[in-house]
Design a protein around this nucleic acid. Sequence first.
DNA 1: AAAACTCCTCTTTTT
DNA 2: GAGGAGTTTT
Length: 703
Amino acid sequence: MSKENLMHDLNPQQNEALKHTEGPLLVLAGAGSGKTRVITHKYAHFVKAHKTLPESILTVTFTNKAANEMKERINNLLGRELKQSWIGTLHSQCCRILRKEIKSLGYSQQFSIYDEDDRCSLIRHILKEFKIYEALYKGVSTRINFLKASLVGPEDFLSSGDGFGFDEKLAKIYVRYQDELKRSDALDFDDLIMLTVRLFKTHPEILKKYQSLFPRILVDEFQDLNYAQYQLIRMLAKAHKNICAVGDDDQSIYKFRGADVRNILNFEKDFPGAKVVRLERNYRSTQNILDVSNAVIAMNPNRKAKKLWTDKGRGEKVHFCWLNNEEEEARHIAKIIKELYLKEAFSFRDVGILYRVNLQSRAIEDGLREMGLPYQVVGGISFYQRKEIKDIIAYARLILNHGDNVSLRRVINCPPRGIGAATLSKIENEAKKKAVCLYDTLKACMKNNGIVVSTREKIGGFVNLIEKLSSASFESASDLLKAIIDKTDYASTLDEEKKQNLDELIASAEGKDIRDFVDRASLLTNMDESTGENRISLMTLHNAKGLEFPVVFVAGLEEGILPYFKANENEDEISEERRLFYVGMTRAKDLLLLTGARRRRLYSRIQDQEPSRFLRDMPKSYCQWIEKVAEPHPFRGRTDKKKTEVKKVKPLFASGCRVKHPVWGIGVIRDCYGDGEDQKVMVNFPNIGLKRLSLKLANLTKI
DNA sequence: AAAACTCCTCTTTTT
DNA sequence: GAGGAGTTTT
């Protein structure tokens, strides 16, 4: 990015946003309208023109990556490097505050941070204990997620009546879960927010302190805040109201995680007299791309209407190509990229291929490889979620916080040291009886005669290891990690790739403070893998947010893929799918190419696909439609019918197939018995459980 | 406690 | 159709 000049290269609307320095400001920033530029310029303007201290501007971003980018651009504007600042994600800011203040809430300062994985394993542990079907853990996790995002703690939930879909079992699990966290001195992601809000609510003097610490607040991606996060910001801004929120309701695509667009719609109510600035000039895309995207997003109800424009000219028409199957789709994409490359019109790094679901990447990768084109898949499994990395981090967490039961369970027999399930369950019981943490129980049980000597020796070895590592002092996080790997002999059973990952982890910890490093590892999900190499980027539409490419493909424009079938007919969800498509289209600077396939293999089943309903909303005058209509299959139809007829004679329902029940919804057949009229089936309905049904009576449909 | 087998799931997921 | 988790086997 070239050196930016304060004030000069802002357009009138951006300037308006810059100059409004006192009081609430809402910037509705369309895609590609330069919202980051507004935030960075405001920041620099405060520092330079208002002599505001950089560390008194709370700047909230949604990803760590965005935070880093923002820091860099601000450094550029200021012409110096900021040493201290509060530019970061809300979670990391809350972590920073809580590390200082959490004693007021009765937690220890050394609290661990549990990520999604840790949370799930704890929930499963609890479900097992309550003898509840364990596979429900995912649902439980999302429910708890939503409760916390709505600032409903376990006690509130218990007394909430019906308001939040009260469910006795869930309440029991929630209470227990939160209890267990407290006991382990652990916070999950949502706790970081929820507890900070609680801290501020129960300790007005602390809130006051932070209100005056941050006389100015800048919030990016405002549409993605959930209720709890919004409340937190609101509390901080309440005293001075110098808050600038930047967002775009059309790009809200994280509702499924609790993000609440209504925050944007409510902003003017919550901050009366707020100034609203619209950024509608787009600096990214051609007019054709904008007109098509505008037309598609305009079909959504309840949005703040805006119309993006550009002076870039019409550019190429938006392409759409309908192909016969996903392999053809992939080859088609690869072929176009190759042509562009040969024409030297674009290089590989200029191309982004976007899709709705990760499984679409496979066919596309095959197509690119076949053609010898270099690519990278962005996102996917993140570095810090790999097992070997999580294991080592768990050791570090246990060393920092002996009460961290989840980490202890994770590492106690990893690598295997002969402490199996039987021993652990004894320890669990003992710990529960004495109401102490697992680690202390381990220490105490060395004298317990109920445990055989050989096991005691093994436990002794483990305790010894942790004690030694805890009392040793290490220069930096990387030394600690090295010691852990060394003393546990962790690497000896790993393959090369995993060893390399560990090396990479150690290298990244070089010279870092241990506590900071472990926090970062918990809060950082995917490391910046954007190596500057010249490659085509493949990613989900979600991951594409905030990025731009000269050439963008959106693949899989079919009913069932985009919109995804799960969003079926629920208007809110269809709207979100539409926004997702909109986000994808507006990533494109010069060329936007859409594809879809008539037939597609999905979960080992070949399906006939309909073109996406969104295609109907695209004004054809800005598009070029290429339909590679399939030559009608001479035997198609007849053979298909025959096949299903044959199947009908044979038992139509077999174990493994999915069925729909009018009351219980979709389930999977576990077992079949009897035949003909009397056939009975055992069906597992997620959330409901096993049901035994008679085919004659139950109105089952195969799907 | 490792190995073998079976069963289940299969959206998106910035923290 | 594949990968992960849970269960059973040795």
